[in-house]
C-alpha cells in the first residue's frame, strides 16, 4: 500500500518535472530591437535567455556567460546561496559533539598516503587558483575552486594532518564569514555610488567580481571542509569490514 502510494507520488513528481522542463522558453534568437528587453522580465521569455545574456555580456566585466549570470546579472541568488551555505555550516558547528580538540597525528598516515598528500595538496591549491582565475573567461569560478580547495582540506584531514578545529577559533570563524561579508559589503557599497543593489559600475565590474570570487573561494573551501571536519574522526580500533 505504502509502496504504491510512493510510486504514484514519484510518477506525479516526474510528470511535473517533465512538464516544467517542457514549458522552458527555448532559444528563439535575439529580437532585432534590443530596447524591448528593457521592459522587463516578461520579455525574457520571448527573447530567450541565452541571447539576452550574450547581448549584455560586455557590461558584465567577465567574458564567460555563466559567471556573468552568477556573479553579476543574478548575483542576488548567489549571495543568498552563500548565506545558505553559511547557515548550514553554523548548524553543523552548533550540533557538533562537544569533544576536546584532537591532537594531530601525522604518523597515522602510511607512506603511500603521505606521498599522495605531498603531491596532491599543492596541486589542488594550484588548480583551485587556476579555476578561480579561469572563471572569468571559461568554465570555472568560485564554487568549483572552493570545492577543489576543500578537497585538499579533506585529504589533509583524512591523513590526520588537520585537527578537528573544534571549537572553531577566531580565524576559522572569520574565514567562514569572509566570502559572505565581502559580497555583502560590495553589494551595499555600490549603492553609495548611486547604483542599484549589486549593480556594479561597468568599469570596475571585473575587479569587483574577482574580489568577490576570491573571498568566496576561500570561504566555500573552509565551509565544505568544516562540514567534513565537524564530526570527530571515528575510533581507530575495532569495527568490522563492511562485508
Amino acid at each position: 500500500m505504502t509502496r504504491t502510494l510512493i510510486a504514484l507520488l514519484c510518477l506525479g513528481l516526474a510528470g511535473m518535472l517533465g512538464w516544467a522542463l517542457w514549458q522552458l522558453p527555448g532559444d528563439v534568437g535575439l529580437k532585432s530591437d534590443l530596447q524591448s528587453e528593457l521592459q522587463g522580465q516578461v520579455q525574457a521569455d520571448i527573447v530567450g535567455l541565452p541571447a539576452l545574456v550574450a547581448a549584455h555580456l560586455d557590461q558584465s566585466g567577465v567574458r564567460h556567460p555563466v559567471t556573468a549570470v552568477l556573479l553579476n546579472f543574478r548575483a542576488y541568488d548567489t549571495l543568498l546561496e552563500i548565506g545558505v551555505l553559511l547557515l548550514a555550516v553554523l548548524g553543523v558547528l552548533a550540533v557538533r559533539h562537544a569533544a576536546a580538540p584532537e591532537p594531530v597525528h601525522p604518523q597515522r598516515a602510511g607512506a603511500v598516503l603521505a606521498a599522495l598528500v605531498h603531491l596532491a595538496v599543492p596541486l589542488m591549491v594550484l588548480v583551485a587558483g587556476y579555476l578561480l582565475w579561469a572563471g572569468a573567461h571559461q568554465p570555472g569560478g568560485a564554487f568549483q575552486a572552493g570545492a577543489v580547495l576543500a578537497g585538499a582540506g579533506v585529504l589533509l584531514r583524512l591523513s590526520g594532518r588537520l585537527p578537528a578545529l573544534l571549537p572553531p577559533g577566531f580565524w576559522l570563524r572569520a574565514g567562514l564569514l569572509l566570502g559572505f561579508a565581502v559580497f555583502l559589503v560590495i553589494a551595499l557599497g555600490v549603492t553609495r555610488g548611486g547604483h542599484e543593489l549589486l549593480a556594479y559600475p561597468v568599469q570596475q565590474a571585473g575587479g569587483l567580481i574577482l574580489a568577490i570570487e576570491a573571498s568566496l573561494t576561500l570561504s566555500i573551501g573552509l565551509i565544505l571542509v568544516s562540514l567534513f571536519v565537524g564530526a570527530p574522526s571515528p575510533p581507530e580500533h575495532g569495527g568490522e569490514a563492511s562485508e
Binding site: 598516503l113 579561469a134 568554465p139 583524512l158 591523513s159
Partner: peptide, 19 residues
C-alpha cells in the same frame, strides 16, 4: 579542466574508504 579536477579528486573517495 574537468578531467584535471576529476583526476585530482577521484583519489579522495579511496582515501576516505581506506581510512
Amino acid at each position: 579542466d574537468v578531467a584535471l579536477v576529476f583526476a585530482l579528486l577521484a583519489a579522495l573517495a579511496t582515501v576516505a574508504f581506506v581510512k
